[in-house]
């Protein structure tokens, strides 16, 4: 196992100083996500402008992978439509499950591609996908 391919600079940066980690004043939607077995715990808050996700932020605690994954996801989905965001969630989960390996197809995940190597660490997969599942739940509620 190559640690450097998992604990990359980008991930460590997002883990340490996430600009997305705060609460939103008047969020339209708040969704709680939890990995009981390891204690990762996040609350995702979203604001909408019609069909668009206009603002997103999170609070909570957990390992570097879960925190960075959440922060990177928020960067990606801000300004996207609900439909686009749901599609990105599916692509991300497929990448972690190794269902999609095509670089071309993964390119739309942008920085979130940095989490691809987690797919080689079964024990950490659930840390990486927590926020994405949480977002999916939230958007399903909205729809």
């Amino acid at each position: 196992m190559d640690l450097d391919s998992v604990y990359t600079e980008l991930i460590m940066e997002h883990n340490k100083n996430s600009r997305n980690k705060h609460s939103l004043d008047d969020a339209d939607l708040s969704e709680h996500g939890h990995n009981p077995s390891c204690g990762d715990d996040i609350t995702l808050e979203l604001k909408f402008d019609g069909d668009l996700i206009s603002e997103a932020a999170f609070t909570g605690s957990g390992c570097a992978i879960s925190q960075a994954s959440t922060s990177i996801m928020i960067d990606l989905i801000k300004g996207k439509s609900i439909e686009e965001a749901l599609e990105l969630v599916e692509t991300f989960i497929a990448m972690i499950k190794k269902d999609i390996d095509d670089q071309q197809e993964l390119r739309k995940l942008k920085d979130a591609m940095a989490l691809k190597n987690i797919s080689n660490m079964p024990a950490r997969v659930k840390c990486a996908v927590l926020s994405w599942h949480t977002l999916k739940e939230a958007l399903k509620e909205r729809n």
């Binding site: 077995s37 390891c38 992978i65």
Partner: peptide, 22 residues
């Protein structure tokens, strides 16, 4: 400032099996 899950992963890379979680 380091979550136990990250700790366990990194010491595992050194061949050391420890538990993390609740």
């Amino acid at each position: 400032d380091i979550h136990s899950h990250d700790l366990a992963t990194i010491v595992d890379s050194e061949g050391i099996a420890i538990r993390s979680g609740h």
